[in-house]
Design a protein around this nucleic acid. Structure first.
Ligand SMILES: [Zn+2]
Ligand SMILES: [Zn+2]
Ligand SMILES: [Zn+2]
Ligand SMILES: [Zn+2]
Lengths: 134, 134
DNA sequence: CGAGATACCGATACTCAGTATCAATGAACC
DNA sequence: GGTTCATTGATACTGAGTATCGGTATCTCG
């Protein structure tokens, strides 16, 4: 995980700490959450590093309808997100059919298509279970 | 456009002003933009009314990667947005194929699909023209 | 290794979108 | 017209993110 070095950035203790932290995380996390777990790292540095990692494509940001944006390790190249509307947990999915369809729609629309972003809103299995058992 | 009255809200001067303003708008607009055009309406009231109109389905919010969220009159029932990555202008589109596909994908994914949100990132014709003429 | 250039750091103060509070107002209903 | 209570605007606040800046650590090169 020498993404930053590869891009000409320095390897520093705060950056290593942040990268190590988010490698462990399976779910999405907020910037504030990183700060809580790494109290020795300054707030500004957290936002700076998150921005670097975004640009490097290591993580992706998810702007949810309310609440702070969530970040998540991006495990595969191009992908989209599932978001549980109850608990806010974030997952990833990929579907070649979508990509093909979005390319087709891009052709039908005035202007030049350059990308897209898709969110699938779900109620995750865990939340379904909790709802049942109540 | 008696959306608010229909939902049991009162018809007040600020609310009428805001609704009149955004009926004229073809493109997306920000909350701050409303305030600039309606300086007599208090800031809090603008946000309050925007929230009401969101809940009523009259407008929709678009959380762009950076910058303030944009709102736009929602002209048709269920739709998705095109966003120009240069100028930020917002459009709407609909495609039955997408809806069918998203339903199918929802079935393949753990949890219960309850909705989705799709953004098509484009460079709009106007921005393409400007780029050419330079 | 040692020195110099400079990227990076944390603390702090700031911006900007949105929200809570609250006294005053004015719709709605009779 | 009078009562009620939703709504208003001013103001103060929150919370995410950014600018600034003096000090520090990393890199590079000799
Ligand atoms: Zn992702
Ligand atoms: Zn895609
Ligand atoms: Zn819309
Ligand atoms: Zn454009």
């Amino acid at each position: 995980m020498a993404v930053l070095e590869d891009r000409g950035h320095r390897s520093t203790a705060p950056r290593r700490a942040i990268i190590r932290f988010l490698q462990g995380k399976q779910e999405g996390f907020t910037a504030e959450e990183i700060g809580r777990e790494l109290p020795d790292v300054g707030r500004a540095t957290i936002f700076r590093t998150v921005k670097l990692l975004l640009k490097a494509g290591v993580i992706c940001r998810l702007n949810l309808p309310d609440g702070a944006p969530k970040y998540s390790l991006s495990r595969v190249e191009h992908h989209h997100h599932t978001v549980c509307v109850r608990c806010g947990n974030v997952g990833e999915f990929r579907a070649a059919t979508i990509e093909r369809l979005m390319r087709a729609i891009g052709g039908d629309i005035p202007g030049e298509a350059v990308g897209h972003r898709i969110e699938l809103h779900i109620i995750c299995n865990q939340c379904l279970l909790e709802a049942d058992s109540r």
